[in-house]
C-alpha cells in the first residue's frame, strides 16, 4: 500500500493508505480527526473543506496520495494553543452562525480562505456568492453571512474586536 507523509495541524504523520483512499478518509479514519465531516458524495456540500498548503480544498474530492508532502489544516488546528479561537470561529459563535454544527467545520474553513483571498473586503452579495461550495440546512445562511462580514474586518485588522450582532 502507498505511504503518505503529510503535516496535519503542525504534526507530521506517515500513513499507509489504499490508492483510492480520500484525504477525508485519511483524516477521519487514520488520524481520527473527526471534526472534518462528510455530508455528501458528489462534492456539493463542503462539510469536508480543509486547507491544503493554505488553500481550501474539499477533502472528499482529493486522494490522500495527492497530498503527500503537504501541509493540512483542519478545524481542530484553527484555535491557538491556549484555546483562543480564530476570529472566524469567534464570529460564528457571536453571531449564532451554527445550529447543528455539522456543516460548520467546512463552512469555517471555506470562510477563512474566502476572506484571505479578498483583502479588499467583501459585500454581503460577494460573501453569499463565495459560499457557493458550502451547504447549510439549518441557518438559512443569514447569520453565517453576518459572521463572515464581521470576521473579515477582524482578520483584515479593521476592528480590534467583534461588533455585537445587534449593531
Amino acid at each position: 500500500m502507498p505511504q503518505v507523509t503529510l503535516t496535519v495541524n503542525g504534526k507530521n504523520s506517515t500513513v499507509e493508505v489504499e490508492g483510492r483512499t480520500l484525504l477525508v478518509e485519511l483524516l477521519r479514519e487514520k488520524l481520527r480527526l473527526t471534526g472534518t465531516h462528510v455530508g455528501c458524495d458528489t462534492s456539493q456540500c463542503g462539510a469536508c473543506v480543509v486547507h491544503v498548503d493554505g488553500e481550501s480544498v474539499k477533502a472528499c474530492t482529493i486522494l490522500a496520495v495527492q497530498v503527500d508532502g503537504g501541509q493540512v489544516t483542519t478545524i481542530e488546528g484553527l484555535a491557538a494553543a491556549d484555546g483562543t479561537l480564530h476570529p472566524m470561529q469567534e464570529a460564528f459563535r457571536e453571531y449564532h452562525a451554527l445550529q447543528c454544527g455539522f456543516c460548520t467545520p467546512g463552512m469555517v474553513m471555506s470562510a477563512i480562505d474566502l476572506v484571505q483571498k479578498h483583502p479588499e473586503g467583501m459585500s454581503e452579495r460577494e460573501i453569499r456568492e463565495g459560499l457557493e461550495g458550502n451547504l447549510c440546512r439549518c441557518t438559512g445562511y443569514h447569520n453565517i453571512v453576518k459572521a463572515i462580514a464581521a470576521a473579515q474586518d477582524v482578520m483584515h485588522g479593521k476592528r480590534s474586536e467583534l461588533a455585537r450582532a445587534a449593531e
Partner: peptide
C-alpha cells in the same frame, strides 16, 4: 446568551 454547545462544534469536537 451565546450557545454553550458552540465551542465544541467550532473546535471539531462534536461527536456525531
Amino acid at each position: 446568551v451565546r450557545r454553550k454547545e458552540d465551542l465544541r462544534f467550532l473546535s471539531g469536537r462534536g461527536q456525531y
